[in-house]
Design a protein around this nucleic acid. Structure first.
Lengths: 231, 231
DNA sequence: GAGGGCTATATTGTCGACACTTTAAACTAC
DNA sequence: GTAGTTTAAAGTGTCGACAATATAGCCCTC
């Protein structure tokens, strides 16, 4: 299990997905302690199941655990966010390169369709679909790389963390219209099977995103969710 | 826990490290089944401890687990190795870029010292120290990035897999003398704080490594360790 | 009144037992 | 003899209890 395409089947799977959802979407605040006994009553499963879920969250770097002490949801810092985007730049750049090489013609056609659909949303100013469209766009390219290591690192790991930052710091999907043009050029490069250009454009695209977010970040991070409760 | 600098403290920690060592170094063959009951007697711990260790190994992509069926050590394939090197190229390229930006002057001086020590080994043809030196070199640059996500992905994840491939496919540290020159140029770029060049040279370095290994790979993989035993 | 050590409590780590699922073997029917 | 079904065994998933560790509060000492 623990892979992007698999369905949750065991109780531990479901609990892991639930817990991750609750953390990423802010129902459980960044920095808060995760008590095993408490969570086991809350989610109505045994401590063993909670422990397994927490262990997986630790592997995703969503929680930090200290032996004999317990687990806390990671604290969000500007450095953490920047570091995340540096990794994204490297990995998704490579993903775009590999996608230009490995995506089938059908997949590329689908990607183009997605882009035109996305363009409709941009014209109609439907910001919700814009964010979903952005994620969808990136996912397709990542999957198009056909590199399982890459796919797993991004989709099972990085993306949930990025989303956690986005949600908990309250920044909706920004700069949609400019990003759309960047998406368009990336798809063109992939259509032309220009690996070099696809990578370069994707890296720039993510770098711009990062620059855009950095500004909003610095003033926000230390105002929210840094209130480590004392039990 | 589960981080590069931490010491193992709990029984589950130690078992995880032991199991990983046994798998990476080939004491447990690629593709073989990991029976929880069997391992719990072998390592003299409870099944819960073994389960936790296996879960961590799954997060590292060293084993694959199917619900209600069990866990197997991953099978080694040429595609897997190539994919691993693609990720390495992306991540270590970024690491070199960040190292050029973030390493202290003292750390860079140390890196230069390591290089001259390594050079002595090359002259004396001490191939064991050559491989260790190579790993040490890469580790320092990775750590020099000061990016915890990057560091963890490479040191806790990729590097153990790469080593597993190396060991189980029986390929000792190759092409040392040419690699040394590449190392030298990378260090020069870092010393000059030339981020762009440091990344480019590191990527090339890893690409060359990959090309070098690919040749030896294709003829070997399907001869060893693909003998899924039937219980 | 302040600091250090001790005790009590709460939480995590580990264990063995039970429940459920899978798998393979045995048996039946055709 | 083959295919399908049933059944038994082996292994995983889940649970509650016990053991070990850390934290906080209390007491004692100075």
């Amino acid at each position: 299990m623990s892979f992007f395409t698999e369905q949750p089947v065991t109780s531990a799977d479901k609990t892991f997905f639930l817990l991750r959802k609750d953390i990423v979407e802010g129902a459980i605040l960044s920095g808060s302690k995760l008590s095993e006994t408490e969570l086991s009553t809350k989610y109505a499963v045994s401590r063993a199941v909670i422990r397994e879920a927490i262990n997986r969250l630790e592997s995703c770097h969503i929680v930090e655990r200290k032996a004999n002490v317990g687990a806390r949801v990671v604290s969000l810092t500007p450095e953490g966010m920047i570091g995340l985007y540096q990794v994204r730049e490297a990995l998704e750049g490579m993903a775009a390169r590999l996608a230009a090489k490995n995506m089938s013609d059908a997949e590329i056609a689908d990607l183009n369709n997605l882009l035109t659909a996305h363009y409709q949303d941009v014209k109609n100013d439907e910001s919700y679909y814009q964010e979903a469209g952005d994620v969808d766009f990136h996912y397709r390219i990542i999957l198009g790389s056909k590199n399982n290591h890459l796919i797993s690192m991004l989709i099972d790991g990085i993306y949930h963390l990025v989303r956690m930052y986005r949600v908990q710091l309250g920044m909706a999907g920004p700069r949609v219209t400019t990003a759309f043009n960047e998406h368009k050029h990336i798809v063109q490069a992939i259509s032309n099977r220009d690996e070099e250009l696809a990578e370069m454009l994707m890296r720039r695209h993510i770098l711009y995103s990062r620059n855009n977010i950095e500004q909003k970040l610095v003033n926000k991070v230390y105002t929210r969710s840094e209130k480590r409760e004392k039990p």
